[in-house]
């Protein structure tokens, strides 16, 4: 780890001021990803600005019937919050599918959104990586890319976003509230994470000097017909090969509203409005779910080692939609897939 200066922000304005004053500074809250990256010399901040004591830990009802969640709420507190468990179980389930109990106790909601890819080449400073050193080249494209993206990748970068929480937030249509030198603004979660394009070193839409203050989830909660299914190399505490967040509104067996998002397959949670529209008005059957899966996976591209992910994703999408339709969501503790 490099030497760095340490400041404790007294409020959000102070954090923005400290961040603006030192272009090499980074915010730290839970630190679970940043400290790890600093130990690998991938991140070398000149200063850490400790925001962990700022009063951004409330979970409040919004006037519109949704919820506003402070950026510093720990992942475990959010997953086990009674309102989240009862009204937004898809979000609770996705959070509990990620990391370990210790890391969920430490990691903040805002930090979860800001976590970086777990691409092994990004972590290995002896190999070229466009995300770490723009213009250096991508080692994964012709390397070991079994875990890498099948959707939305570029010739510069085929890394994936590792978050489970973000996949559920994408399906729920969440918003991200940020504050910065020029005031506050709101970013749709769908636009918060970027595709790599030719600037893979830019993960998100966050500007310099900006800080996440809260996320907001709309009232439509899909509390009955939902499921989060995560497929990985071991049963717990591993990043997704493919994960699926599915949420349905049903009248009888007819779908009136559908949300679908994929994790582990792209540089951001992957949604297709076309796939969701194709489900509306249809019966909740495996054939219709298969058609939606084909639409969601349109343009999927295999690299040398990750071609299996395309069929895996297709089957996982159908399975997760069946779980959602039958109101038998995947348990994150009892691992048998119904």
């Amino acid at each position: 780890m490099n030497n760095f200066d340490y400041s404790r922000a007294s409020d959000v304005a102070d954090a923005i001021r400290l961040l603006t004053a030192d272009p090499g500074a980074k915010l730290i809250a839970g630190g679970t990803n940043l400290i790890d990256l600093m130990k690998e010399n991938v991140e070398r901040p000149s200063r850490l600005i400790d925001i962990s004591r700022l009063p951004l830990r409330d979970i409040e009802e919004t006037a519109g019937g949704g919820l506003r969640i402070g950026a510093l709420v720990p992942n475990s507190d959010l997953a086990y919050h009674p309102v989240i468990e009862q009204r937004y179980p898809l979000l609770a389930s996705a959070i509990l599918a990620g990391a370990s109990a210790q890391l969920r106790n430490m990691a903040s909601v805002g930090g979860n959104l800001m976590q970086r890819t777990r691409c092994a080449y990004f972590y290995d400073t002896t190999t070229p990586c466009n995300k770490r050193s723009p213009g250096a080249g991508c080692s994964a494209i012709d390397g070991l890319n079994r875990n890498h993206a099948i959707l939305g990748a570029s010739e510069s970068c085929i890394a994936t976003n590792p978050s489970d929480m973000s996949v559920a937030l994408a399906a729920l249509g969440a918003l991200v509230h940020v504050a910065g030198p020029s005031g506050q603004r709101t970013i749709a979660l769908a636009d918060f994470h970027r595709l790599p394009g030719d600037e893979p070193h830019v993960d998100t839409d966050i500007g310099s000097g900006e800080i996440i203050t809260a996320i907001e989830i709309p009232p439509q909660a899909f509390a009955r017909n939902y499921s989060y299914l995560k497929i990985r190399d071991r049963l717990s505490y591993a990043f997704a090969l493919v994960s699926v967040a599915a949420a349905l509104e049903l009248e009888g067996n007819a779908i009136t509203e559908a949300r679908l998002a994929l994790g582990g397959v792209a540089h951001k949670p992957w949604r297709s409005l076309e796939a969701e529209a194709a489900l509306r008005g249809k019966a909740a059957t495996p054939d219709h779910f298969g058609h939606a899966a084909d639409l969601l996976l349109q343009g999927a591209t295999a690299r040398s080692h990750n071609g299996f992910k395309i069929e895996l994703a297709r089957r996982a999408i159908v399975r997760t939609l069946m779980q959602a339709a039958s109101a038998t969501p995947q348990s994150q503790a009892h691992k048998k897939i119904a």
Binding site: Y6, I28, G31, T32, I35, D36, K39, L48, D50, S52, S100, A101, Q102, L103, N105, M106
Partner: peptide, 27 residues
């Protein structure tokens, strides 16, 4: 592992279990 992957460094901070290897003491 010193990277939050093995849990050998787990301690309780204010009663909650955390990975002490990924925690800065000054915080």
């Amino acid at each position: 592992c010193d990277h939050g992957q093995c849990g050998a460094c787990t301690v309780l901070v204010d009663g909650r279990r955390v990975n002490s290897c990924l925690t800065l003491a000054v915080m």
